[in-house]
Computed example of a mutant assay.
Amino acid sequence: MYLLVSLTDVVQIHPTDFNKPGYRAIEDFINAKYADKVIHKVGLCVAFHSIISTSEGLIGHGTGIVNVNVDFRLIVFRPFKGEIVSAIITNAAPQVGIVLSHDFFEDVVVPPETLFQDTRWDRDENGTELFIWYQKAADYDEPTPYYFDRAEKCLYRVEEEQWTDLSPQKQKPHSQFADQGDDLEGRRPPYLIRGSMMLSGLGPTLWWSTDEIDGPDDDVDGDVDMDAQP
Score class of each variant (00 low, 15 high):
3 L>A: 07
4 L>P: 00
4 L>T: 15
5 V>R: 03
10 V>S: 10
13 I>S: 01
13 I>N: 02
16 T>A: 09
16 T>M: 09
19 N>S: 12
20 K>F: 04
21 P>A: 09
22 G>S: 07
23 Y>F: 11
23 Y>L: 06
24 R>L: 11
24 R>P: 00
25 A>R: 07
28 D>R: 07
28 D>Q: 11
31 N>E: 12
36 D>H: 10
37 K>L: 01
37 K>H: 07
41 K>P: 00
41 K>F: 00
42 V>T: 08
42 V>I: 12
44 L>R: 11
49 H>M: 04
51 I>L: 15
51 I>K: 10
52 I>Y: 14
54 T>A: 05
54 T>V: 06
56 E>G: 08
56 E>L: 08
57 G>H: 05
57 G>K: 01
57 G>Q: 03
59 I>A: 09
60 G>Q: 06
62 G>L: 03
65 I>T: 11
69 N>K: 13
71 D>K: 14
71 D>Q: 14
74 L>A: 03
76 V>G: 05
78 R>T: 04
79 P>L: 00
83 E>P: 05
84 I>R: 14
84 I>E: 06
85 V>M: 13
90 T>G: 07
90 T>C: 12
91 N>R: 15
94 P>F: 07
97 G>K: 04
98 I>H: 05
99 V>L: 07
104 F>S: 10
104 F>I: 06
108 V>N: 09
108 V>W: 08
110 V>Q: 03
114 T>M: 12
114 T>V: 03
114 T>D: 11
114 T>Q: 11
118 D>Q: 14
120 R>P: 00
120 R>M: 05
123 R>M: 09
123 R>Q: 15
123 R>C: 08
129 E>R: 14
130 L>A: 02
132 I>D: 05
133 W>F: 13
133 W>R: 13
133 W>T: 10
134 Y>I: 03
136 K>G: 06
137 A>T: 04
139 D>I: 04
142 E>N: 13
143 P>Y: 07
143 P>W: 05
143 P>C: 06
146 Y>P: 00
146 Y>G: 02
148 F>G: 09
152 E>L: 08
154 C>D: 04
155 L>K: 13
156 Y>D: 05
157 R>N: 02
158 V>N: 09
159 E>D: 15
163 W>M: 00
164 T>N: 15
166 L>N: 03
167 S>A: 11
167 S>D: 11
168 P>W: 05
168 P>V: 02
170 K>Y: 11
172 K>Y: 07
172 K>C: 01
176 Q>D: 06
176 Q>Y: 13
178 A>I: 04
178 A>P: 00
183 D>G: 10
183 D>V: 01
183 D>A: 14
185 E>M: 11
186 G>A: 14
190 P>N: 08
191 Y>P: 01
195 G>L: 02
196 S>C: 06
199 L>A: 14
200 S>I: 11
200 S>V: 13
202 L>C: 10
203 G>K: 03
204 P>D: 01
205 T>H: 05
207 W>E: 03
210 T>I: 06
220 V>A: 08
226 M>S: 10
227 D>I: 05
229 Q>H: 04
230 P>M: 10
230 P>W: 12
